[in-house]
Amino acid sequence: MSAVTMSEAGTNFAYLDEETKRMIRRAILKAIAIPGYQVPFASREMPMPYGWGTGGVQVTAAVIGPDDVLKVIDQGADDTTNAVSIRAFFRKVARVAVTTHTAEATVIQTRHRIPEHPLIEGQILVYQVPIPEPLRFLEPRETETRTMHALEEYGLMHVKLYEDIAHHGRIATSYAYPVKVAGRYVMDPSPIPKFDNPKMHLSPALQLFGAGREKRIYAIPPHTDVRSLDFEDHPFEIQRFDEPCALCGARNVYLDEVILDDRGGRMFVCSDTDNCESRQADAQKETAA
């Protein structure tokens, strides 16, 4: 085995053996060929727990090469513990360069967010997916949901949205908001806030979704039509924040609420830490200049 393919951890490059990576790549190719369709794959036991990104890790392991630059985020931040842990894993088993800058990364593995900085052609965004089936909580049976997808039987999905409007006056789904991909398959975009949904539409980057425990891979190829489900008279809308980020002043970005004390004091700051820090750095340069 060559030096390139053997990592310092004593495992094959990017942990998985080549046969397994080939199997995952075949699933990925099929997923790209049928946008939004959940391709079953033989998910492996990984050295991190199911539900903690094993699907994303396997997809990343299958697509990453020695020249790639990896960014890992969780909740939009590079520094959350699980992101740190996954980044460390790939540094160890693949010795790839890592970054926190969205623009520099070739592969970005994410949990629950799409970076604010627009993605470009050639980048791959890998989502960690807990429950890939958008119909699961309407119909628990896998055999039935697969039939519903096959027959494009999506009426039930709208029943749920109808109920939201009837009871709350609005669609009360705020994350993992279902989308229709390329006019065919209804897809769960993983638990990203619906704020991020529009970023999937016609994105120049390749978007791959890996669900390890549920053993499914799906994809949105670059420049694919991605529509959030809605009604003509209750169109899809994203969250709006009343104030800008308290640190960098950004508007039209997703914000985290930070509790400052026990008397209701709070502030709103960017969920995407890289974007926030870059903006702060730019602002400092400007004042210095």
Binding site: G155, V159, I165, F231, H234
Partner: peptide
């Protein structure tokens, strides 16, 4: 699900996407 959704389900299943009309 509500009575309204029970009646409306078939309409949504065949592609009706206007809440008010449903």
């Amino acid at each position: 699900v509500s009575a309204g959704a029970n009646v409306g389900e078939r309409l949504m299943a065949v592609g009706n996407r206007h809440y008010g009309r449903i």
